[in-house]
Amino acid sequence: MEKKHSKYPINHIVGFALSITLTIIAAWTALSSGLPTMWIIITIMALAVIQAAIQLFMFMHITESGATNAPWNMMFHAFVIAAIIVAGSLFVMSFGFTHDHGGGDHHEGGGSESHEESQEDHEGH
């Protein structure tokens, strides 16, 4: 409250525009870019990393050294939860991936693969 908000929030506006643009590019990549599936996944993942960086640097004050280490604490928890969501879903839904969806070559031999997957995920917990 001590600091007056006199400065025009140019950083925030640039960040906002950038994050919207990235989202639109991601949607376009998925819907109508016509790239092979693997490339779509890689592109979206890359865009997601950039998006996260924009959020952290332009909105979430990651560069400001505060009195606490709360941001790192929260990021650690966020990573743990993300790991639980992704690994946990793969583990739980592994039976759902066993049938051939007809499109991918990475779905073959479902039964044994999904079993290995579950084993790995279990060790990960």
Binding site: I81, I84, V92, S94, F95, S118, H122, H125
Partner: peptide, 21 residues
């Protein structure tokens, strides 16, 4: 609380190992 959610759908068919965990 973040690692027990499957007990709401044990009967979905996730298999004995998943259910045991």
């Amino acid at each position: 609380s973040f690692v027990v959610w499957v007990h709401h759908f044990f009967t979905m068919g996730a298999g004995a190992f998943v259910n045991s965990v």
